[in-house]
Design a protein around this nucleic acid. Structure first.
Lengths: 187, 187
DNA sequence: TGGCAGCGTTTAAGATACTTGTCAATATCG
DNA sequence: CGATATTGACAAGTATCTTAAACGCTGCCA
């Protein structure tokens, strides 16, 4: 988990020199040199100063440190989506959640969701920390987020913090199809 | 941005004492006491040890430190999507990129994209660090990512690291509609 | 060729984080 | 009530990070 290595790649991606970044952050070039060689582990305060000068948030910075890739698979045929089992969302086969790729290996989770008429995720779905967004492809759905309720038609969308209680309910006669994304993935 | 305060709340939420956490993390109770009073800013190495003992990831830890909400807007009618101007992607009005909400305020950017027949983003689109995924709603599109090329039809999807060179090309006779997401947002 | 400007690295001195040991305060039990 | 245990906070020493000032290197231009 070399944070120095990560800092270097971030800095170089911005085209900054150690001295330039040091000046902006109120530190010295020597400090940055040592950190980038993983010869010292900066205090959170120092790291925050550096990232503010980039600029980049701490969570962004660490989000990419904690990953590791290998065999790249970029494309997924419609049939290759993995159906999230009923046990995962506790709604048996009332609704279909089809996930694109292996979310555990990415910072982005994309779903092709189908809600049959009457499907309802229930009232109390407090959950994971993440952001969640989607666009309605066809059908009609009623979404409740915290204290707000809204009916969305094809072409409409939503975007909220997943920590807020939320509920999806298909109030139409036809299946409702939604393409949604959330980040970071929930397991 | 009191990370000490945050550490205390996380520790207490787990029902751990300073000494107990210190033992697991290989540090001392005094250290934790000072950090939690914001009298010292721990090194990243120390903080990582503490979080490993909780356990919690660094990005999770900071994700909650860096939040601040105000006026929540969760729903967007089809007409409320903001069309990303031609200058943003340099392709004039060949294709339509309609963004859901204000991506600058979120860690998730969702787009409703329409590629007219023949539209082509061009061969060399190296870019931003992020992950990018999408599902084809209608039409047909050819996507090239690094050295891989693939033709996707309705229902198919893609998922890749935005830093890789990538290209989208509508090779059909009808417009191609894609719903895509990327994180973190690009500006 | 010499001189300058920029880069990243290194080293000794100074500042800060961390340890060790101790303290008062609050339980809990006989 | 007194004894014991556990908790979080504090003071003095040690380890570590950070600074300041150098070093060697590269590219540029006269």
């Amino acid at each position: 988990m070399e944070i120095g290595t990560r800092l270097r790649s971030v800095r170089e991606a911005r085209g900054l020199s150690q001295r330039e970044l040091a000046a902006r952050a109120g530190l010295t070039n020597g400090t940055i040199s040592l950190i980038e060689q993983n010869k010292s582990s900066p205090s959170v305060a120092s790291l925050k100063s550096l990232l503010d000068a980039i600029p980049m948030s701490l969570s962004e910075f660490f989000a990419e440190v904690e990953e590791a890739d290998a065999a790249p698979k970029y494309f997924y045929a419609a049939g290759e989506f993995t159906e999230l089992g009923p046990s995962d969302h506790g709604l048996d086969d009332l609704l279909s959640l089809r996930q694109l790729g292996n979310a555990a290996r990415h910072s982005l989770q994309m779903l092709h969701e189908t809600y049959p008429p009457g499907a309802d995720t229930g009232p109390d779905m407090l959950s994971h920390e993440a952001e969640e967004a989607g666009i309605v492809i066809s059908g009609i759905i009623e979404i409740t987020v915290r204290d707000q309720r809204r009916v969305l038609n094809a072409g409409d969308g939503y975007l909220f913090d997943s920590r807020l209680p939320h509920r999806f309910r298909n109030i139409g006669d036809a299946p409702c199809v939604i393409v949604s994304a959330c980040t970071p993935p929930t397991f």
